[in-house]
Design a protein around this nucleic acid. Structure first.
Lengths: 336, 336
DNA sequence: CTGAAAGCGCTAACAA
DNA sequence: TTGTTAGCGCTTTCAG
């Protein structure tokens, strides 16, 4: 009994009266084929609506032309932009992107990597959920090209794309100092992240450089950042005069918390955000922020990945560090 | 010469001193295997770090356990949320998601579909770039399960997930009317989209129902929505007293344009947005909006897809229509 | 319970 | 220039 499946190269070959290999050659635009046959085979392909099975091709070629991408949160615009850039870069090279959200959970992240490896991805672009004492290295095959971005993995021989976390944080803090702020608190979450730690370090450097006491307010996870908690942190005996919030989520929560506390940004307290976003300029006062080049991060990551795909996994890892842009609007104390 | 590749089932079998088939049975947890051999094989798998090649498996099984997802723009939070939900739903069933951004270009969309079909995706979730006279149907194999969301494809036998575009727009418009607005203009882009057309229709119904003249201001594409253009539309002889903007991008552009024109929302003009987003509540005045359940759309889409995967492509298509939520804040004229 | 052999759709030696 | 013959890594009749 014939199967009613999609036509295969065998069907095409039979129908065109040529051998399988000839059909294959036509498919691959190999040069050594009689023109008449080429035309005939192509006509048959057209007529049958033939589509090559890329999986079968990949099995033979030992590559899938698929790259995996794992981020903590697909609905965060920062990662959305990065995924978009990676996908576009991959497409330009004929690759597809298998994407996954780890939710920031290392366990999930590992199991997603496992899944992708079993699917024979040719490379992996990942924004690790947890960076330092990382056990990802154990489960990633040593010959799989990997590029980390946003958060690097310590001591791993992977290419990485990051931003100037420390310098940018220092510069931002300095800007608040320049506006006369003295009791600046830094609000962040998940201090075990390298990204967070670096930003805090930059903040510290600026504060200590100016002879002021750093006040770090870090929670284990963003969901612990409540108005109640924030209040206790900024309304102590020494009331804070500025907040430097370390990522998009923290900024959002801080903004809401401040409103709940009846505090007005710009009047009662200054605010500067690490991460810029749409409509930040439409807030009252307009929010000043450190803007990360999110698409650029993705674009660089995929670029590095393809270079690695060529050069093999042996040559020493490369890191790209991208600059940020301090967007001064009003919440930091600037006037328009 | 032996290859230094990853171990295969053959390697495992040889190493464990069993036949290939026995190893395969162990891998698939088939019941009829001697327990000792099971243990032995598993030990070898462990030791060798064996990972089954899912592509090879899929070739045999004629399925990839991969589903494709195509959206116009991955960096739009609406789609980011949907992708996230789809990916999570797919993961729960052991499938991966191949994702792609069409940029809203039908050509790109088609070529992405082609790519995915060649990769043997088991199903497709798509937010079409262009809905009506759609030629997607021609290139999608008739036995491929497809679920459209956000924008349906006219006359196609696909499952679909949409929202109550018309009713929601009518309700929103009515709300503006209730606040005393009379010269309400609707600002939208890409009127050829079903989504847009439905929203405009709902707006019309409300306006005509109240005996007022609809004023539709539609541009072919969002990038034509400039401050200059908006000015000409709302400052005519009959100056508009309210704007109903039809999607996130239009709202953003409108907000900026109004500021550039020196018009203050709430005082000079009312504003209601189709699409809610983070920080809409932090604007001054807080923005009122029709909130779409973006994650829910994705979740329903993947649910329908898996049902379709079971039932086959024959049974009649299902459509799910999700309600929206009118979030009343201040920009529509409400007071808090 | 186990294994030899065939084959999923395609490509690549190796002849012809 | 072409076709034959082996596989890629896995599953699966179908005999032992």
């Amino acid at each position: 009994m014939k199967k009613s499946q999609a036509p295969t190269l065998v069907d095409v070959a039979r129908e065109a009266g040529v051998s399988l290999k000839t059909a294959s050659r036509v498919l691959n635009e190999s040069s050594n084929v009689n023109e008449k046959k080429v035309a005939r085979v192509q006509a048959v392909m057209e007529r049958l609506g033939y589509r090559p099975n890329e999986l079968a091709r990949g099995l033979k070629a030992r590559k899938s032309e698929a790259i995996g991408m794992i981020v903590p949160n697909l609905s965060d615009p920062f990662f959305g932009n990065a995924v978009k850039a990676v996908q576009e870069g991959a497409r330009a090279k004929g690759h597809v992107v298998i994407v996954s959200s780890s939710g920031g959970y290392p366990d999930l992240e590992r199991s997603e990597i496992e899944t992708m490896v079993r699917r024979q991805i040719d490379g992996l672009v990942i924004a690790p959920a947890d960076s330092c004492k990382n056990n990802l290295v154990r489960i990633i095959p040593s010959n799989l090209p990997v590029v980390t971005f946003d958060e690097p993995i310590q001591d791993a021989r992977y290419d990485s794309v990051t931003i100037t976390n420390r310098e940018s944080a220092r510069e931002a803090t300095q800007h608040l100092l320049d506006h006369g702020a003295r009791r600046i608190v830094v609000v962040g979450a998940r201090p075990y992240l390298h990204t967070c730690a670096e930003r805090v370090a930059g903040y510290r450097e600026a504060m200590e450089g100016a002879g002021h006491t750093p006040r770090t307010c870090l929670v284990e996870h963003e969901n612990m950042l409540t108005a109640e908690w924030l209040k206790s942190q900024i309304l102590g005996k020494k009331r804070a005069d500025a907040i430097f919030s370390l990522n998009w989520v923290c900024t959002m929560l801080t903004l809401h918390a401040l409103r709940d506390l009846g505090m007005e940004v710009g009047r009662d307290i200054l605010l500067l955000s690490f991460d810029d976003f749409d409509l930040a300029d439409m807030l009252t006062p307009a929010l000043s922020a450190v803007a990360q080049p999110s698409e650029k991060l993705g674009a660089e990551a995929i670029r590095l990945l393809f270079e690695r795909l060529k050069s093999g996994t042996e040559t020493s890892p490369r890191s790209v560090v991208l600059p940020t842009r301090l967007v001064l609007r009003e919440s930091c104390g600037c006037r328009r």
